[in-house]
């Protein structure tokens, strides 16, 4: 959590889109920006890029108001996937409330996925986050391309871990909302346990998701 100000009644959450280079993290944010309602969401800010590659991060903010008057701001970030931007990844990962790992479905990218996921595990440990407790979802993107790992293979690998896995094609706007919705749900549960969003602020999960403009799309 970036900030929680009880007097100002303000809470700022951070969700991070992690993954190997060119797996489509920024595209996910662009699609979220396009699909979700204008109200309650800020503009997508894309920080300096070079040759269409993220070198700092992208940011998409959302706003939610609880009946108690608590204002919740959800900031969604992407990290640069390239190996040499590890310091930036660590900085962005700091105090994250949830992580979506965007993997590239192509068989040729299998190694990069594995490497990036271990990088995530390593960096979470460095910034003091427990991967067992942190809300985490995995998205296998680029399902529209040929030469991809079969879905059964992916499911058989990941289902024992209990981490939710989504198939997506961000370019075709498939699976993006589902991924984000599940991450938002898990993040709500995690924050609710610690801060009593429902009990103290009258904000239930359905309302939380609706404010993120998710309920309509998902139904």
């Amino acid at each position: 959590m970036i900030e929680y100000d009880e007097i100002d009644r303000r809470m700022v959450l951070k969700l991070v889109y992690y993954g190997p280079a060119l797996s489509g993290k920024t595209t996910n944010l662009l699609v979220l920006h396009d699909l979700l309602e204008r109200e309650g969401r800020g503009d997508l800010m894309v920080l300096d890029t070079k040759d269409d590659r993220t070198i700092f991060f992208d940011l998409l903010p959302f706003f939610i108001s609880a009946p108690s008057g608590l204002k919740i701001k959800v900031k969604v970030y992407t990290v640069p996937g390239q190996v040499n931007h590890d310091a930036t990844r660590k900085a962005v990962l700091q105090r994250a409330d949830g992580v979506a790992f965007i993997a590239d479905s192509r068989i040729a990218e299998r190694e990069n996925n594995v490497e990036s996921f271990s990088n995530l595990e390593k960096n979470l440990e460095i910034v003091g986050l427990d991967i067992e407790k942190l809300p985490l979802v995995i998205q296998f993107n680029k399902r529209d391309l040929p030469g991809i790992i079969p879905e059964e293979d992916i499911r058989s690998v990941w289902s024992p871990t209990g981490i939710p896995v989504f198939m997506a094609s961000a370019l075709e706007k498939r699976g993006v909302i589902e991924t984000f919705g599940r991450l938002a749900e898990m993040t709500f549960d995690s924050i609710d346990r610690r801060y009593g969003l429902q009990e103290n602020h009258g904000l239930d999960k359905a309302a939380f998701l609706e404010k993120l403009s998710l309920s309509a799309q998902r139904a």
Binding site: I2, E3, V12, F57, K75, A91, Q94, R95, I126
Partner: peptide
């Protein structure tokens, strides 16, 4: 990540409110 050996290390969280 504050390094006590280097008090001048910049501590800053990406996303802190401005």
């Amino acid at each position: 990540m504050k390094d006590p050996a280097r008090p001048d290390t910049l501590e800053f969280v990406v996303g802190s409110e401005k």
